[in-house]
Each structure stands twice: as C-alpha cells, then as structure tokens.
Simulated scan of single mutants.
Amino acid sequence: MEEFILESNIKLFYIQAISFPEGVLEAHQKLHNMVPFSRDRKYFGISRPENGIIVYKAATEETFANEAEKYNCQTLLLKKGKYISIIVEHFRENPQKIKDAFDQLIKHYDLAPEGYCVEWYNNVEDTVNCFIRLRKQ
C-alpha cells in the first residue's frame, strides 16, 4: 500500500450498476456506448456500501461543462486529498485481484467514513489503481 495525493477534484458522471458484482461489466459497457473509449479521458469504478448493499458506479470525468446533462447522467465529485492505494496489474486475467486489493485497503485504520472504493483505469493497458480516501488530510 502507498499513499498518494489527488491534486484536484474530479467531477464524474456515471452509470450505476443494477447489482454488484454481477452488473459491473454491463454498467461499464453502457458508459462506453455513450462515451467511446479515449486515451484522453479518465475512467473509474466507484463503490461503497449504502443501506447494507454495495452500490457500484461506472464513471468518467466530465471533460466539458454540462457534459453529464448531455448524457442525462448524475454526477459525483472525487475529492482531492490523500488516499491509500494499491496498483493492480493484469486485472483482466484475474479480476479477483481488484477485490483482493480492496480487501487489504479497507483494513487501513484511517479511512474517511464517507469515502469510496475507487478504481482508476488510467489508460495503462490492464492496470488499475485501487484507492480509498483517508480521513486525515
């Protein structure tokens, strides 16, 4: 695990999965049908427990004003600040690696109570940065 600083807020818009984990792939497919893949765009998976179930959102950054409204999507703000992270390589070969990374991360003693588990698909083939916001900034 490593700490890193997200230097600025990132406004995201998203497609919420119908279920977790079964609906995750479908949510990403719907998002990519609306917003075709581009190396110039950041893509995310955002999740956390809400009312006893894990809610998952396939998300991308808003690249121009009101882009979320254009696609009739809701938004959320990925807050700048300090995060704890694990970089997962070759996740396509073994998606379980993402779950394993978050199983380690959620054991950290200083997680922000309203934080999200974030997957940042940062345009490196088959690599994802898994991270959670820390309480102390």
Rank of each mutant, 00 (worst) to 15 (best):
Met1Cys: 11
Glu3Ile: 14
Phe4Lys: 11
Leu6Ala: 06
Glu7Ala: 11
Ser8Ile: 08
Asn9Leu: 06
Ile10Asn: 06
Lys11Thr: 06
Tyr14Gly: 01
Tyr14Cys: 00
Gln16Cys: 07
Ala17Phe: 02
Ile18Arg: 13
Ile18Asp: 15
Ser19Asp: 12
Phe20Arg: 01
Phe20Asp: 06
Pro21Gln: 06
Pro21Asp: 08
Pro21Ile: 08
Leu25Gln: 15
Leu25Ile: 15
Glu26Tyr: 05
Glu26Phe: 05
Ala27Ser: 10
Ala27Asp: 04
Ala27Asn: 03
His28Pro: 07
His28Lys: 09
Lys30Gly: 05
Lys30Met: 07
Met34Ala: 08
Met34Leu: 14
Val35Trp: 02
Pro36Gly: 04
Pro36Trp: 03
Ser38Asn: 09
Arg39Asp: 14
Arg39Tyr: 13
Asp40Asn: 14
Lys42Gln: 14
Lys42Asp: 13
Phe44Gly: 01
Phe44Ile: 02
Phe44Tyr: 08
Gly45Pro: 02
Gly45Phe: 00
Ile46Ser: 04
Ser47Asp: 11
Arg48Asn: 09
Arg48Pro: 10
Pro49Gln: 15
Pro49Asn: 13
Glu50Asp: 11
Ile53Tyr: 08
Tyr56Gln: 02
Ala58Gln: 02
Ala59Asn: 00
Thr60Ile: 11
Thr60Lys: 00
Thr60Glu: 02
Glu61Leu: 02
Glu61Tyr: 01
Glu62Met: 05
Thr63Trp: 07
Thr63Ser: 10
Thr63Gln: 10
Phe64Pro: 01
Phe64Asn: 01
Ala65Gly: 13
Asn66Met: 07
Glu69Arg: 07
Tyr71Asp: 00
Asn72Pro: 13
Cys73Ser: 10
Gln74Phe: 04
Gln74Met: 10
Thr75Phe: 01
Leu76Cys: 06
Leu76Met: 11
Leu77His: 10
Lys79Val: 08
Lys80Phe: 08
Gly81Ser: 08
Gly81Trp: 03
Gly81Glu: 07
Lys82Asn: 10
Lys82Ala: 08
Tyr83Gly: 02
Tyr83Asn: 03
Ser85Asp: 06
Ile86Thr: 07
Ile87Ser: 05
His90Val: 05
Phe91Tyr: 11
Glu93Met: 13
Glu93Ala: 14
Glu93Asp: 13
Asn94Cys: 13
Gln96Ala: 15
Gln96Ser: 12
Gln96Trp: 09
Lys97Phe: 00
Lys97Ala: 01
Ile98His: 03
Phe102Gln: 06
Asp103Glu: 15
Asp103His: 12
Asp103Tyr: 12
Gln104Cys: 12
Ile106Ser: 11
Lys107Val: 07
Lys107Met: 09
Tyr109Phe: 15
Asp110Ser: 13
Asp110Tyr: 09
Leu111Trp: 08
Ala112Leu: 15
Ala112Phe: 11
Pro113Gly: 06
Glu114Val: 03
Gly115Glu: 09
Gly115Ala: 14
Gly115Tyr: 07
Tyr116Gln: 05
Tyr116His: 09
Tyr116Ile: 01
Cys117Ala: 15
Val118Arg: 00
Trp120Pro: 01
Trp120Thr: 03
Tyr121Pro: 00
Tyr121Val: 01
Asn123Gln: 11
Val124Leu: 11
Val124Arg: 09
Glu125Arg: 12
Asp126Gly: 03
Cys130Phe: 02
Cys130Glu: 02
Phe131Asp: 05
Ile132Arg: 01
Leu134His: 02
Arg135His: 14
Lys136Tyr: 12
Lys136Gln: 15
Lys136Cys: 15
Gln137Gly: 15
